[in-house]
């Protein structure tokens, strides 16, 4: 049963992360695609940090941030009575940071490719800015959103180091598939490790295959730079 709990927990974590990131990353990616601001390179670099940093480093800093001695951790304890570290919520926050570039970069590429022209055209046809964005850019960025969502979901499913640092190993709360695999190997339960590993491999391959097939032209340019 531990496997199924872990699989469900992993899917829940990846699903929530994907949805929340979609909302957060949309304005950020739009700004990155169209702004000429002098701080843009700095924001771009910050967004890309999770691509190059070891997950343990991110996990370490997040753990410190989550500590009740710190502002965020302390506030959380005051509001909910529990700590962020070693909780599912803490895991979601960590995943948001960890998977951010996988959502932002494909969206930025899609928005840059679409450009501002559809908004201008829509404005001359009487559409207010939000209406124009929703009716032109959003549907035109569909394949960008699909790529971003799939990559984010799959990447979150595969995270390990940051989970180990921030989440630990609590069944039903923070014990995701990658942790179960690690634990199986530690306890020499190779059968379980094989089953879950093969499952993840097949899952990742089929997901990527789907993306590349559905976005044959678009996908290569939309993948995050470091994973090309």
């Amino acid at each position: 049963m531990t496997e199924f709990t872990a699989i469900w927990l992993t899917a829940k974590l990846a699903g929530i992360t994907t949805v929340v990131l979609m909302v957060i990353a949309t304005p950020l990616a739009w700004w990155l695609a169209h702004s000429q601001h002098r701080l843009k390179p700095a924001i771009e670099a910050i967004t890309a940090i999770p691509l190059v940093m070891p997950p343990t480093v991110l996990g370490f800093y997040l753990l410190i941030l989550f500590s009740p001695d710190n502002a965020l951790g302390g506030l959380w304890v005051e509001l909910t009575g529990s700590t962020l570290a070693f909780s599912f919520t803490g895991l979601v926050i960590a995943s948001l940071v960890y998977s951010l570039p996988f959502m932002v970069q494909p969206l930025t590429a899609a928005f840059a490719q679409i450009g501002r022209q559809p908004l201008e055209t829509a404005a001359t046809l009487g559409a207010n800015p939000w209406d124009a964005w929703r009716s032109t850019v959003l549907p035109m960025a569909r394949s960008g959103y699909l790529t971003a969502a799939v990559l984010t979901f799959a990447h979150t499913v595969g995270e390990f180091g940051i989970v180990l640092m921030v989440g630990g190993n609590l069944a039903g709360e923070t014990r995701v598939i990658s942790i179960v695999i690690y634990e199986s190997v530690e306890t020499l339960n190779y059968g379980q490790a094989h089953a879950l590993s093969a499952g993840l491999l097949v899952f990742s391959f089929s997901v990527l295959l789907c993306v590349y097939y559905s976005n044959r032209q678009l996908a290569p340019s939309l993948l995050p730079r470091s994973s090309r």
């Binding site: 559809p118 829509a122 001359t124 009487g126 032109t136």
Partner: peptide, 28 residues
């Protein structure tokens, strides 16, 4: 703002919305 000026603008280049049919473009 542009959307309240009610100008009909035909741009030099093609500016049809690619995700809509011709009729949806016309009705926009």
């Amino acid at each position: 703002p542009s959307h309240k000026r009610r100008v009909g603008y035909v741009f030099q280049e093609d500016r049809l919305f690619p995700h809509m049919s011709v009729e949806e473009n016309l009705r926009y």
